[in-house]
Simulated scan of single mutants.
Amino acid sequence: MGDTVELVAITRHNLAELLQLDAGDGGKQVAPNLKSMAQAAVYAEAWPRGIAVDGVLVGFLMLYDPSLTAQPEEPKFTLWRLMIDQRQQGRGYGAAAVQALIAHVRTRPGADTLYLSYVQDSANVAAAERFYRSQGFTPTGEIDDGELVMSLKL
């Protein structure tokens, strides 16, 4: 890959750039970034980050981090959103971002497992599972709100 992938804070300076990104799935696999940013504004547990390659946003992820508040809604660290712009997919940026997130979560108080879930009723379900397995996640056997749950022991 060779490009430097970083997780960067979303600020007033890069919000417009973030909102231009599009996963190309019509919102079927991952919610639009506008919805994610609205949720981040009202959930104290949200940790939204742009996925930047050499300073240019190519995607977005959001962690649900229960250590950010004294009374979290859920006690689990969860990869809440992951999207790579359709023009940037297939370049390894998603994998690099997930690995950067795993490294971050390992530094968080009380983090021993990272969870995620993904839509199961789509043509991309096998690809999603393959991708997350390649990052070290394994299926838990749980279904949450119609989505398959995977976890990674930290």
Rank of each mutant, 00 (worst) to 15 (best):
D25T: 03
T113F: 11
G24Q: 01
R130T: 14
V30Q: 00
Y118H: 06
P32H: 11
E129Y: 08
G26W: 04
N124Y: 15
I51F: 00
K35Y: 12
V53G: 01
D22N: 13
G90D: 02
A31E: 12
D25P: 03
K28Y: 07
K35H: 12
P66D: 01
F131T: 02
V119M: 09
N14V: 02
N14C: 03
L18W: 00
S117V: 01
G59K: 02
N14E: 03
A31N: 11
D22T: 01
V149D: 14
G94V: 04
Q89M: 14
F60R: 00
E6N: 09
P72D: 03
A96D: 00
A52E: 09
Y115H: 11
V42E: 13
E45Y: 04
R12V: 14
T11Q: 10
P66T: 01
I143K: 13
R87M: 05
A31D: 13
Q71T: 13
M62H: 01
G136A: 10
A100R: 13
F137R: 07
W47D: 12
A96Q: 08
M150H: 11
L15C: 11
L63D: 08
N33D: 07
Y43V: 03
W47Y: 12
G136H: 09
L68I: 04
H104A: 14
S117G: 02
Y115G: 07
V98C: 01
G92C: 09
I51Y: 00
L82I: 11
Q71G: 07
D22H: 02
A41M: 05
V125F: 08
A46C: 06
A96M: 04
D121S: 13
E142H: 14
G55P: 03
A128T: 13
D3Q: 08
E17R: 12
V125A: 15
P72W: 04
I143N: 14
Q135H: 00
A9G: 04
G26L: 07
Y64C: 02
R87V: 10
E74V: 08
E45P: 01
D3I: 01
A95C: 05
G27N: 06
L152S: 08
S151H: 15
D65F: 00
P66G: 02
E147G: 10
K35A: 15
Q86M: 13
P109V: 09
V98M: 00
E73R: 10
G110E: 05
E142P: 09
A70T: 10
K76L: 13
V98T: 05
L63H: 08
Q39N: 12
D121E: 12
T140W: 10
S67F: 07
G2C: 07
T107P: 02
V42T: 10
Y115L: 15
Q39W: 08
V119N: 14
Y43C: 11
T69N: 03
D121W: 04
H13K: 05
Y115N: 10
E6K: 07
E17G: 01
Q88I: 03
T140V: 15
